[in-house]
């Protein structure tokens, strides 16, 4: 028989375990708020992978070479796979994927707002790989050390598999940048449109991020929004120079004293608009996901019915 503990002493022991870098595993006791925060964060991450297939998927059938088509198809397939790893991690916390999908479709759980921007040209595929995946990887590398075991393990696998995603984006843009005039302009236009939204991917500034303190204490989050954003900017500026593409920020310059790049103010009003559902593609993204779910219902049901029949045949025999 297992001994019983008071809620309070459990919480204390939980925090101590976290403080000593012990990983939390699915059947461990955990505070309900830890569980619900974890579910929300993993679900949001999973939804982002699945919704994130749409802007890039938009170009698979139009990819300008067969090599690029294969790369893009493999990348978008990876995103489906990563969504699946993450939903599986969320399911270890006692929710079902079905519930999470329903919440996404009902607009009651979020996904990364970056995917509410449209992919207007082929260069956007490169900009997403280079900037959006670059930002995502910065964030995800920090999450490989997150306190919840299944989430951390999914992150390790995802980071390993995503290493080619950013590289292909960089290579794609490099090819365009040194290509024809029209190609170079296409690349610059894409960078102009994706730069600021990529910076917004790290979330609101630390001063306005209410959940950060608790998430840091629980080691759900390991690095703050602003620190991750700075890390990303510092990493990306030299890459832009190598690409011979401009980042659309006149205030961007090296600050010797800080040892970091300074950058201009982010338009948080735009961020709030897009998060609030008023970005260019919010409705489209959700309606595509809903349509796939609804149109697939008869297929899922048929497979269940068939399996049910096999079961009853086996038990009758």
């Amino acid at each position: 028989m297992s001994p019983t503990y008071s809620e309070e002493s459990r919480e204390l022991a939980f925090q101590e375990a976290i403080d000593s870098d012990r990983t939390v595993e699915p059947r461990d006791w955990m505070p309900e708020r830890y569980r619900s925060t974890m579910i929300r964060q993993i679900a949001q991450h999973a939804h982002s992978e699945i919704i994130g297939m749409q802007p890039e998927g938009n170009w698979i059938t139009r990819a300008p070479s067969l090599r690029r088509k294969a790369i893009l198809l493999a990348k978008v397939q990876d995103e489906a796979g990563h969504g699946l790893y993450l939903y599986a991690a969320a399911e270890t916390l006692g929710v079902e994927r079905r519930e999470l999908t329903d919440l996404l479709i009902a607009g009651r759980q979020k996904y990364s707002s970056i995917f509410n921007y449209p992919t207007l040209t082929w260069a956007d595929v490169g900009a997403i790989g280079w900037l959006v995946d670059g930002a995502a990887i910065t964030n995800q590398l920090a999450l490989t050390k997150t306190s919840y075991g299944p989430y951390a393990r999914a992150m390790v696998r995802i980071c390993r598999e995503e290493s080619f995603h950013q590289r292909q984006g960089f290579e794609l843009l490099a090819e365009l940048s040194r290509g024809t005039k029209a190609q170079h302009e296409m690349a610059q236009d894409a960078v102009n449109r994706w730069w600021w939204p990529s910076l917004m991917m790290f979330g609101p500034p630390d001063t306005e991020s209410p959940n950060t303190a608790q998430s840091m204490a629980w080691k759900i989050k390991r690095v703050s929004n602003d620190d991750l954003r700075q890390r990303f900017v510092d990493m990306t500026v030299p890459q832009a120079q190598a690409l011979r593409l401009e980042l659309p920020d006149p205030d961007l310059r090296w600050n010797e004293a800080r040892g970091h790049f300074d950058f201009g103010p982010i338009d948080w009003e735009e961020f709030r608009q897009v998060v609030g559902g008023h970005g260019p593609c919010n409705q489209q993204r959700i309606s595509v996901r809903r349509a796939a779910d609804e149109e697939g219902a008869w297929v899922r049901e048929a497979a269940r019915a068939w399996e049910g029949r096999q079961q009853s045949r086996t038990s009758a025999a």
Binding site: K69, A74, V76, Q77, A292
Partner: peptide, 29 residues
């Protein structure tokens, strides 16, 4: 098959259909 991307009846099937499309694209090349 690639046209199915983001429209498959279940997420597991997204991965499967993309595999078929990728294999065939490789053969085509």
């Amino acid at each position: 098959l690639a046209e199915w991307t983001t429209h498959a009846p279940e997420l597991e099937e997204e991965v499967a259909l993309a595999n078929l499309a990728l294999d065939l694209l490789g053969q085509a090349r």
